[in-house]
Nucleic acid binder design. Structure first.
Lengths: 243, 243
DNA sequence: CGAGCCGTTGAGGGGATTCAAGCTCAGTGG
DNA sequence: CCACTGAGCTTGAATCCCCTCAACGGCTCG
């Protein structure tokens, strides 16, 4: 599993120490405040974990013993309503911390499911507990992450649940642009996934996407990936706001 | 201002020490972990603050120096979309901690506005900073509050933004029941406020409420307050889920 | 190659919005 | 005292957006 990473160099097996040192997200990552010596002690306890699309990382109510940072890919959080249908309530991407509630300690609050291929760093709860005792700065970093998640959740309400189907789809595309890949492509959800995010029927989602493709806002590619014209997307959103 | 509280006894002016000691929400409040001696040091720094309906506690982007716990009443969080209309993204009630983001330190993330008459305890940021240094337990309590806010935000997405207008109104009433008053009455939002919470027109909100009143789920009272039949509310939600 | 999943498109119906008109009620001033 | 006013609430009618039901095509995979 350690080999299955973008950090791999010249086909050699990759040690966790190297992963952390070279980690592209280190600056924004949980342990960014630690010096190299501090990182040394951390390496051995952190594992890489991969997640395939639609694969579940953990379930709501599960009592886990680890939290995760996302190295690459997109993860979504689902919740089942009393009606029995699944609703996607939030997403997370590169650099985001997820499953923080195990620190309280508390069961996971939502299901975490892979949207794309995902690479995660698995951080045991005990490790964070130990580090927090010695390094108070880490605590502030943790609180920042919590607030960030809360802020994104509020933004989700304001963006993904408001207005016409077209506006919500446009807002979704704008959100997905935040997790744009190296080759400018974004993850384009399946229609039933859009349905669960934006509270609309799969047919409506399909119609909106088809229309946006005809309008040149969107360029579909293979395997649930697409490319967006940022200017045309913004223009379409402006029109939506005006009307 | 100290006199303007439900804790007042026999008309005597109320000292903050008494307020904290007798505080009904102490168990669930931020400083519940502190012993009486610890509380003593805290009293002098905490002020009571009241908030009238539609009055704003703080604005989004404002750099404040205090966080608050809610003693009585309901507070809502608003955010303005790019379209220019206000959207209510979350609510908080008795015992909830709000404005925690000042601890990071960071500007307030949303507008906080009173729904009912509200009584708050104003806690300076500096006080929390000092206490955290001496009492690590407090830090855990803070994290619990953050997670709780996050959890409620996710629940808001799943409940208030999903399904038919009728379902969303029913879910809103269920949520408001959580903040039920001493006399079994709840805050019944104005129709335009419901509109901002549930993303529907004021007319639709009015129609739904009128119908629920005819159905006996709801008993309107004076001044934006009402009483709900819990069993009928649950029954109505069951039907909604089945259909 | 048939089966099944996913996406697309069409037709019809229903729920929500929009536009519009009254209604209640509290506050105001003649 | 009461008309006047304006804000909030309600209700009706027409329109429109979205959902439902349905059929079909492309694709993968056993």
């Amino acid at each position: 599993m350690l080999m299955n990473t973008t950090m791999q160099i010249k086909g050699e097996p990759l040690l966790q120490a190297q992963v952390c040192t070279f980690c592209e997200v280190r600056r924004s990552a949980l342990f960014g405040a630690l010096d190299d010596a501090g990182l040394e002690r951390v390496h051995a306890r952190i594992d890489l974990r991969t997640l395939a699309p639609t694969e579940r990382l953990y379930a709501r109510g599960e009592t886990g013993s680890a939290l995760y940072t996302i190295r690459t890919g997109v993860v979504r959080f689902e919740r089942v309503t009393e009606g029995g249908d699944r609703r996607i309530v939030r997403m997370a991407g590169r650099g985001d911390l997820i499953g923080q509630e195990v620190l309280l300690p508390q069961a996971y609050a939502d299901e975490a499911i892979g949207c794309t291929n995902v690479e995660l760093c698995r951080i045991p709860r005990s490790l964070v507990d130990e580090l927090v005792a010695g390094e108070p700065t880490l605590m502030r970093e943790l609180m920042r992450r919590w607030q960030q998640s809360l802020d994104r959740a509020a933004a989700w309400v304001a963006d993904m649940t408001t207005g016409t189907a077209r506006r919500r789809v446009l807002k979704l595309l704008a959100e997905l642009q935040r997790h744009v890949d190296a080759d400018d492509s974004i993850w384009l959800p399946r229609r039933d996934e859009m349905s669960a995010m934006l509270d609309m029927s799969v047919e409506t989602a399909s119609r909106m996407i088809s229309r946006l493709r005809r309008e040149g806002v969107l360029d579909a590619r293979t395997h649930g990936r697409a490319r967006v014209h940022p200017e045309r997307l913004d223009a379409a959103l402006q029109v939506e706001h005006a009307g």
